[in-house]
Structures are given as structure tokens and as C-alpha cells.
Design a protein around this nucleic acid. Sequence first.
DNA 1: TATGAATGAGGGTTCATTCAT
DNA 2: AATGAATGAACCCTCATTCAT
Lengths: 198, 198, 198, 198
Amino acid sequence: MSNAKGLKGRETRQRLLRVAEGEFALHGYHEAKISEIVKKADLTQPAFYLYFSSKEAIYEELVRQFRTGIIDLLESSRIEPGLQQREIAWRVAFVLERILGFLNDNRGLTQIGFIQHPEAEAIKKTIVDIVASNLRSEQELGYFRKELDMEVVAHSLVGAIDRLTVTQLLTDRLSPKEVARQIVDLFLNGLQIAHSPE
Amino acid sequence: MSNAKGLKGRETRQRLLRVAEGEFALHGYHEAKISEIVKKADLTQPAFYLYFSSKEAIYEELVRQFRTGIIDLLESSRIEPGLQQREIAWRVAFVLERILGFLNDNRGLTQIGFIQHPEAEAIKKTIVDIVASNLRSEQELGYFRKELDMEVVAHSLVGAIDRLTVTQLLTDRLSPKEVARQIVDLFLNGLQIAHSPE
Amino acid sequence: MSNAKGLKGRETRQRLLRVAEGEFALHGYHEAKISEIVKKADLTQPAFYLYFSSKEAIYEELVRQFRTGIIDLLESSRIEPGLQQREIAWRVAFVLERILGFLNDNRGLTQIGFIQHPEAEAIKKTIVDIVASNLRSEQELGYFRKELDMEVVAHSLVGAIDRLTVTQLLTDRLSPKEVARQIVDLFLNGLQIAHSPE
Amino acid sequence: MSNAKGLKGRETRQRLLRVAEGEFALHGYHEAKISEIVKKADLTQPAFYLYFSSKEAIYEELVRQFRTGIIDLLESSRIEPGLQQREIAWRVAFVLERILGFLNDNRGLTQIGFIQHPEAEAIKKTIVDIVASNLRSEQELGYFRKELDMEVVAHSLVGAIDRLTVTQLLTDRLSPKEVARQIVDLFLNGLQIAHSPE
DNA sequence: TATGAATGAGGGTTCATTCAT
DNA sequence: AATGAATGAACCCTCATTCAT
């Protein structure tokens, strides 16, 4: 329950977090068992409660780790104004790649905080807000079509990220860079062949 | 376990299914309690087992209802070839609207079979396959850009549907028709203002 | 609960008894399920209670059938006095064969009333009493050795019958006649080669 | 499930085994309740599952204890060849007394493993095999009558042991020694007064 | 004579959590 | 910093039995 200051204590705590991450990611909150976590961490059940006050507490801590990570990333990725039209694609792709890279590098946390936890909804909402705000800036600068509702677009983007993360990234089918490229191409240019509006 | 033939039996069974749908949708599989389901259905626990062999069995039946519904819908929505370029948007929007309408009309089932059940992943994959196959037909007919990987596009589309369903549809913010319109506009035309390719 | 007088009723009752005999014999009292009995008798559960007041009631009735049968048999088999020494073996073998024949012809009842029911102990005790009484008569007439405790002998005899019934009779390895012959030979003459007591 | 290593744990485990032995012996498998066992062992139900994985598991362990005990006893009791005719009776009586002593000293286990468990049949078969093999040796050495089927004799002997254990031993009517003496006398010499075969 | 529908009572088992050391 | 031992609180499920028709 205390943050146990000694070195050994800190290590044990980390071990529990890492094992728990794996178990939660794999089985979900309910099917993940404290008994299994401590066994894999080479500890007894009471020891668990030396470091975390409850099963929920460690789960929440993992969610917090995810949220902090992703939010920090997004905050530091605001696209500065004043870009040229053609630079935008590059810039957006770059930000997207960083996000996907983060998800890819933190698969357990992603599974927990981006997919299964009830709060995933809230986290996604936060992302959507940031993205939508970015998009609106560009829109006002005349880069994007005026008639689009940028909140809907942002939700769609997050949806695409979600699905492609689960099906391509976490299954090692595509790299973050490749996924980013395809999303950007699709979202910027759409499906249809541009028909010269004469 | 048996399908109890009389009229009353059938009604009771339906009542259990409807109540269970609500409970599972609201609380998820584990937090949903048989005791609560039967209480809301005005029955005792043993009565439950007259109609379903286990908690899992009724959950699976609900998932099956969802899958059957959505798959049937998709199968009957294949876009026939030979459309004009500008008809496509209409047609796609129409199909999309039907899908969103189904999700909207079956909120409990959607929550269970499209979001929370492990098999949701498989169901989405099936949808993706059908959609991708449709898209590739159009692509070969020259309507869509050759350089797009239609599987990735299909995943993105499903992701967008997923997110917009949860955030707009199930929260009564937008109607199926409106969501469909926006998705189609975004996916067909993209974000950027078409720059006349001189 | 009533003895249901009509013909059809009597038939149904018999069917239930026969099916129950099989189920109880095969699975024992607790593992035998009313649901299974009625299913095999092509009836519904409430119908069962038209003929028997409870699960225990039908079980007891079967035990009663067994006890009545075997006791009647024994009562009618008292060995009349005045036999010659060498006739005794024949006579005893005959009685034994009848008993074994009864057990063999009523396998289900035997399993229930002779092996598994708590009252089997009492039934065996009754048999032992009758047999011991018979044996003591012969003993007093000078046919059997004076130093033997006939109650112990009777218990041993019943034990032999028990085991040989289960292992030889009910498995169709030996016939009642053959089992009777061997038991009589063993119990009358013993294992050892008679050493002429010079 | 685990063998809980500390001293206290081992004691608790033994307590559970002893209490369970009594309950199973008295009521049989189905009527014996875990709730009653733990109450008599001064524990709560979950504690039971610290030591045994299920109700069946502890029952099986008791059966195993019985089987191991009796088989070990029998294995160490093979009658060595080369005995004089008149020593045989002594020797057989001694072995029998040991067996009956074991049954007498382990009444709960005997009830469970020798009487009520389905496997009792198999255990008895094992005993019969060992006994029959012993008997056949003596028979070949000319001590016992050639015309006897020793398997049948062995079954009869086990039957006698069974019945006399239940009716005399477990009811404190006769001692193991006395029961052994009577069985040996009966089985070796038979009922009839040896008629000098002149 | 029989059935469709339902229930009361109880049983085994699991799991997060705590006490005492 | 950690463990052996134990528990409170639930939950799913089964089965004999009954009600109403």
C-alpha cells in the first residue's frame, strides 16, 4: 500500500506492474487473476497488497500510464501553423506515425487503456478533441474543406487508428510508418479519383 | 435447454433474452448476474435453466443474433455493378445508412456483439472482407484510386463506423442518415480541397 | 399418488418401475435422476408423481419387491428334517441354486436390494438368520461339526453368495447351478484333502 | 490443491482428512457435505479448497489410502512355500488376522474403500487375484483339493471377510483373531464331519 | 391421464482480501 | 519485505417437487 522506498521494493513493484499488464492485456480485467499475477511475479498474494491496495488499483495505474503517455505525445505534437499545403501531408503523417509507434511499443498498455478499459472511451474522446482542434485550425487556414464536421472526422480517424492498430500493428502485418502513410493518403485524398472540376 | 414449445414458454424465453441483452450490454459478461436477469424478468433462477443451459449459452445466443442480423444485411447489400460514377456515392451512402440503422435499432446487441464480445473481432473481420471485396470491384471498374489497399480502407471504414456508432449514434447525437452522409463524403473525397491537377 | 386403477395407468406405473429399476441399479440412488427416468419412460415429470409420491417411494418399492421375493423363496425352502447325510448336499445345492437363480433373474432388483440399499444389510441379516437356523438344525441332527458357530458360517455363506453373484453371475461367467455346486462343495468339504483321522 | 508446507497446514490437512473419512463413511459420498466437514474441522469452506481441489479429490485420496494400505499388507503377506501341512492353517490364520486387523483399525477407510466406493469392486478383484494365486500354489503342492476352482474360492473368502467385517468386526462382536480362526476352520475343513473315506 | 411452466432449497466452488507472524 | 493460513461474499447451477390447466 505504501510506495515502498527501498530498491528491492521498487523492483518488485515494477515486476508486478509488468506481469499485470500482460495478464490484463491477455485476459481482460475479470479473467485476470491476482493469484496468477503473483505466481508469475514469483510472490505470494499478501505481498501484492504491500504494493497495491487492490486489483482495481493496479489496473487503474496501468491505464494511467497509458493515458499519460499518449496525452503527452499528443500535446507535444500540435502542428504548428504556417505550413505549406504540401507540407501538411508530411507533417500529419509524422504525427500519426509517432502515435502508432507509441501504441506499437506499448502493446499491453494499449490493449488495456485503448481497447478494453471503460475509460478507453474517455481517452479516445480526449484524443478526438485534440485532433479535431488541430483539424479545425487547418480548416480555417483554408487547407481543408469547409463543409466537413471536424469532430466527425476526428472520430473517424481515431476509429481507423483503432482498427488498424488491432489488425495490422499488433499483428505485425504493417509497420507504424506504413499504416500512417495509408491513413494519411486515404483521409487527405479520399477514395475517388479526383475529377477535375471544370 | 429446450425450446419449450407453448406460447407462454416462448414469451418467457424472449423476455429473458431481452432482459439479458440489456444487462450484458450495460455491465458486460462478468458483471451481469443471472440473479439480476431473472429478477428483472420476474422469474426464479431455476426457471432460467429451463430455457438456457448456462449463462454463457444465452450470451452466445445474443451474439449469434447480432452476427446473423448484420451478416444478412451485408449479404443483401452487395452493390451491383454498372453504376455511374455519381450514383456510387448515393449507393454507398444508402448501404451505410442501412448498416448504421441496424446498429442503431439493436443497441444492446450491438454493444454485445460489435463491441464487447471476443468474437466482435471476428465479426468485424467478416464485415471488412465483404466491404473490401466490394471496394475492389469498384476499384477495378476504375471508380477508385488504384494505389489504395482496399483492406486497409475497409478496416478504416469499419473503425469509423465503430467510433461514430458509439459516440454519435448510440448517444442520439446524429441520425444514421447523417452519419452515413458524412462518412461517405469523407471517405470518397478526403479532407483536402481538390487541387486541380494541372 | 393414487394407485390409478385403469389399465393404462397400471401399465404406466409398471413402466416407471422397470425404468427406475434400471436407472437405480446402474447409477445408484443419488445419481439416478427422476428427469432421466421419466424421459426413458416417455413421460413428463409431473406424471411421475401421479404414481409415486417421491423418488424415495419408488426406490423403496423396488427394495420391497426384492425383499419379498427373496424372503418368500427362503421361507419356502426350509430343508425338511430327516434327510440322509448324502442327500443333504443335494438339497442344499438345490436351495442355493434357487436363490442364485432368483438373483440372476432379477438383476436390477438384486443390485438395488442386495447391494446398494442401506437396508441390504437388514435383508442380509434376515437371510443369515434363516440360513443359520437351518444350519443349526442339521448340526443338532449330527450332520455338521458341533464346534462351528453357525451364525458366522451363515454370514460367510451370504458373503460368498454376494461376491459370486456380482463377479460370476451378473457377469455371465457362471450359471446359478455351477455357482451353487462350487459353493456347496467348498462349504461342505473345505479346502483340505481329508486326512483320514487315524 | 497444494500440499501447504508448514506444520500448521499439514495438521489442518490431516484434520480435514480425518473428519471427511468419518463423514463419508457415515453418510456416503453424496450425503456427506463439505459444509459439514469444514464445520467439524473448525474451518470455513474456502479453507477446504486450500488443501483439496474438490470434494471428489479428498474422497479419492481416502480411497487411495485404503487401497495402498491393504495392497501393501497383502504384498508383504505372501505365504512362502515349503510349509508343513499343519503349519498352513496357522499361517493362513495369521495372514487373515492381519488383514482383518487392518480393516478393524481403519474402519472409516474400510467403509469407504472396501464397501461404498465404485472402485471397491476393483480393489476386491485385486485381493482375489493375490489370494487365488496363493491358493493355487498350495494346491499344486498338494495341500488343497485339486478339483476346486481357486478363483471361486478366493471370491468366497473375500465375501466372507466382507460380511464378517461388517457384521462382527465393525460392530465389536468378534475380534480379528477370532474371526480369522473361524474363517480358517470353515474354509479348510468345511462343515461336514469328515467321514472316513474307507 | 397427462403436461407446460415454474420454484424452494441447497450444494460446490472461486476470488479478492486480511490476519498474524 | 514477505509468507502461511484463513475468510467473507458471491455466483452458477441442479434437482426433486408442485401449480394450473
